[in-house]
Design a protein around this nucleic acid. Structure first.
Lengths: 130, 130, 130, 130
DNA sequence: GTGGTCTAGACCACC
DNA sequence: GTGGTCTAGACCACG
């Protein structure tokens, strides 16, 4: 849980956001569950509390969590997906970059589809929560 | 060609790199073809030559182009793919993020696969270069 | 430390890269140690921060250092050597040029071997890290 | 003979200089022998005559060849080596860079010495012309 | 405070 | 003409 690579070029707070979302998707974190407090998590991961704070703010902004003042941060139970055109573009861009890179590494259509399939299985739950 | 979003958070030079690689993949730019000169492109896009320069250097570092001093920058004609473990991880991470985001937007397994399929078609040539 | 010849034809940033790598090899800089900040070193050497920046980026690209955003640049502690065919050729070319030049200065086989031996001693630690 | 890599970052004229010197050392070109004319060589290698010219000038500057006006460029027969301190430093720097790079690729003392030995054999004649 | 990006403008080596 | 390097000075994101 919460795999962070401090030497990566993507900001730590962003890695945290991704990590939490991935955890929820995999079922490691349940909807309604309480996340560790900012200070607690900061100590656990030897990170600056500001960094955790920023990640939690971002998660709340994305409606992935809700914060109850004085109580803590909880995974939202009723997340209402909105398919903004912008966000769809973002996702497409991620996939597009992936495909372009994969091509440049010599992967072919089938290889790419196989890789996607494996990832879909790894992130189980994707196909089963409609 | 060369779609740049000046207000995006991803660096301009990086967008240029992605754009060129995508263009090659789509067949808009042929192997062996000459890219615009640094100054020329800078004027065309009203960017600083240094920014273009940085993009071109990165492309060369990735062996996507070769540069002949005093002559110009050319799309590499014989690209030898190398599959580092590190690079595979990078690509997987791109796809993984895409899948996680897609899920949060309410997409289901089939939606994702369909999206990938469309992108593969858009980036034609991917399946035909073995 | 950081001997730079401003009038040399090899770029300053490249000299910096070589200098740091040599320093590490000689043990003047320890693995894990922090390098001076970009601005600090720029002031120390009366160079433009961009020049230092370029050198540090190149070092990172070569996995000689890691950079922690907002914290600084550190000498990589666990360097994993990779022997590309290309890189071996580069090194051989360096030695070959050296030998050719040495010959033109009247050095003989033994002289060259002696010189190499001295250099290996000067760069102590080379023989002791298996 | 005259292996040129136009995509290399070292100038073509410099590659030519190195190539001629290496050829002489290997005995492929004899002292007193005539080099191809500037125009001839330019046509042979599809290079700009200016480039050949510059290489020949550099060779003459280094006393490796002599140019007889209206006759051509010849390999000097009586080369008198001078061991300037500066030139020795240059050679040492070449070897030093080679050693540093070799180390970073995981080569050990013996590996390096073996490589040097092989190169000395490849460039035969080095040990036999005193 | 740190590194990362960008602009503006200059100079050089190479072909 | 080309790409490559360097300076000067600005702004931003990150921790």
């Amino acid at each position: 849980m919460f795999n962070i690579d401090i030497s990566s070029s993507t900001p730590i707070y962003q890695q945290l956001v991704d990590s939490v979302k991935e955890g929820i998707l995999k079922g490691l974190i349940e909807p309604g569950e309480k996340l560790p407090s900012v200070r607690e998590l900061a100590k656990m991961m030897t990170l600056n509390p500001n960094t955790i704070q920023k990640a939690y703010q971002e998660l709340e902004r994305q409606k992935v969590t809700v914060t109850l003042r004085g109580k803590g941060t909880y995974v939202s139970s009723n997340y209402k997906p909105r398919k903004d055109e912008d966000r769809i573009m973002e996702v497409k861009d991620l996939f597009k970059k992936g495909i372009v890179e994969a091509h440049y590494m010599g992967f072919k259509r089938e290889d790419i589809l196989k890789m996607i399939d494996e990832l879909l299985k790894e992130l189980e739950g994707v196909g089963s929560n409609d």
